[in-house]
Design a binder for these strands. Sequence first.
DNA 1: TGAATTAATATCGCGCACGATTAAATCGCT
DNA 2: AGCGATTTAATCGTGCGCGATATTAATTCA
Lengths: 149, 149
Amino acid sequence: MTSDADKALDKAVEVLRLDRQLCFALYSAANRVTRLYRPLLDALGLTYPQYLAMLVLWEHSPRTVGEMGQALDLESSTLTPLLKRLEGAGLIARSRDPDDERRVIISLTDAGDAMRDQALGVAEQFFCKLDTPLPELVDLRERLKRLAV
Amino acid sequence: MTSDADKALDKAVEVLRLDRQLCFALYSAANRVTRLYRPLLDALGLTYPQYLAMLVLWEHSPRTVGEMGQALDLESSTLTPLLKRLEGAGLIARSRDPDDERRVIISLTDAGDAMRDQALGVAEQFFCKLDTPLPELVDLRERLKRLAV
DNA sequence: TGAATTAATATCGCGCACGATTAAATCGCT
DNA sequence: AGCGATTTAATCGTGCGCGATATTAATTCA
């Protein structure tokens, strides 16, 4: 014979199992991917979030901090120090917008622009490391984009 | 007329577009989910990684730091300070294994055990917030588990 | 015009996440 | 027994990610 309390406990144990949690699968996969990128990005002297910021700029430069924040879904409190580090590395330049002194315009330097070719290599090496069929990756990507928007 | 260099640039621009990067979709989704959990976990006084650590312990306690690190795929350099904070909050206890003084055994306190019920509420509220059919979530979870293992 | 409101970044504090290193305990092997 | 190798946690430094707050500039509208 099983009490109601026992049944409630069983339910809790079932529902809360780590391997059932989407949140953990996501958290863990994101950590794994960061770790996978690290050795590739070390060669460029970039961290993973810095690489993402450079992707934004390679797509279109110059852009304001706010536009980059929207593209990356990050706060200025995250972006500002990151961008200062990229500036320190000589990959970007930061300047106030003369038309609106509140805005800071981020533009690629020649060195930052030149890194694009190496980035292409990183993207290809990462794809090889994943060793997963492209359609599966595309499918996963689209599902992730839809999640919790 | 288009030069080879232009063609290579076009390829780079295409391949490196942010919306084509699985890595960014994953990174961004993980950030979004953390933000979604935050208000729910604030009520329990837990951060998101602390919640994951508690999930491990609710599943099975006691466990060593190493076992928890394996379950969560985290280093001791991440786990040790996190566990000290949970200890400070009175949710877990840390003690050396008498059979092997290198190991540290983590066990739930009564308060930590009691929090399980509230955690069940968090899991349910999160599911509601996601507002996505369960099969879609299960599918996504399994795809994430397979990624970059 | 000028005071209040709004907008764009920056600053600060906290808690991860991890690589590199260290410290201590155990194991393995002779 | 003894000693080098291995294992287990902990420590340290760096770089996020974000909420709360501050700062400065632009806008609104009385």
